[in-house]
């Protein structure tokens, strides 16, 4: 599904990603862990197509196509979804309107007709219930005045409505208390399917107690320095990131 080859990315002349190789197949869940500033968010933005980065080397294939040839919207239409570490507020635009515009944009690209308004609302309400979100959030402006946890839930709600095939979640677990973490993790687990892949960016092992990854990668200084199975996350938890630094140094 996703193939990252020797990816180098700079911002204002400073190299942030220093050669990433990663292959993610259909249905797999990959966790990416790493200390602050190691380039995790940068990687997620590059996959989604944010402006302001210089790709100096390498390429990314998405279902065999060159991802960098696709605009931001095209990537979304083709099934790339990024749950933001810091979801953005859109004042005056209601959540329901936003969701509908997004979903219809994607459906249009895929040659589908617009959803019936009633069907749409009842399907969204069902998903909100699963995420333990009050229906009043539908009519509030997108993320405006939402608490940190509410924003993260809203990201997962959008993801479950838009049904992407590649879900990149950037620290969706940070800022959630333990109950909320459980609800959100369940929401993500419900979306797992043989057709859908996940990149879970996280700082902490605790998310991985709920969502069992197939692979864990450790990112440091813009590079994958270690890959392994779920046990790698536990090892990291025990040893801390200093352990990675030590390994790098030696």
């Amino acid at each position: 599904m996703l193939k990252i080859e020797n990816l180098h990315v700079s911002v204002e002349g400073k190299e942030i990603l220093t050669g990433i190789d990663l292959e993610i197949n259909k249905g797999e869940v990959h966790a990416i862990m790493g200390p602050n500033g190691s380039g995790k968010s940068t990687l997620s933005y590059i996959l989604a197509g944010r402006e302001g980065y210089e790709i100096t080397q390498g390429r990314v294939l998405f279902n065999g196509k060159d991802l960098f040839e696709m605009s931001v919207e095209k990537r979304a239409w083709a099934g790339v979804f990024l749950a933001f570490q810091y979801p953005v507020e859109v004042p005056g635009v209601s959540n329901i309107y936003f969701l509908k515009a997004a979903l219809n944009g994607i459906r249009k690209f895929n040659g589908l007709s617009e959803l019936d308004a009633m069907d749409f609302i009842s399907s969204v309400k069902g998903k909100m219930k699963e995420l333990d979100m009050d229906e009043k959030f539908l009519y509030r402006a997108v993320n405006e005045g939402f608490s940190g946890g509410e924003k993260k839930r809203n990201e997962v709600l959008q993801m479950s409505v838009l049904e992407p095939t590649l879900c990149v979640l950037d620290e969706t677990d940070s800022g959630l208390d333990i109950d909320a973490l459980q609800v959100v993790a369940e929401g993500i687990n419900r979306l797992r399917s043989p057709e859908r892949s996940f990149v879970l960016i996280t700082h902490y092992q605790r998310l991985l107690d709920y969502i069992k990854p197939d692979f864990v990668h450790v990112l440091a200084h813009g590079k994958v320095v270690k890959s392994g199975g779920p046990e790698l996350a536990l090892e990291l938890e025990e040893q801390g990131y200093a352990w990675v630094e030590d390994k790098l140094a030696s």
């Binding site: 605009s71 919207e73 990537r75 979804f81 936003f98 944009g105």
Partner: peptide, 18 residues
């Protein structure tokens, strides 16, 4: 804001107008 809307599949024009 623009990037967020566009990442969700809303075209740039629609995003600005929204």
């Amino acid at each position: 804001q623009l990037f967020y809307c566009m990442q969700r599949g809303i075209s740039a024009e629609d995003a600005v107008s929204m």
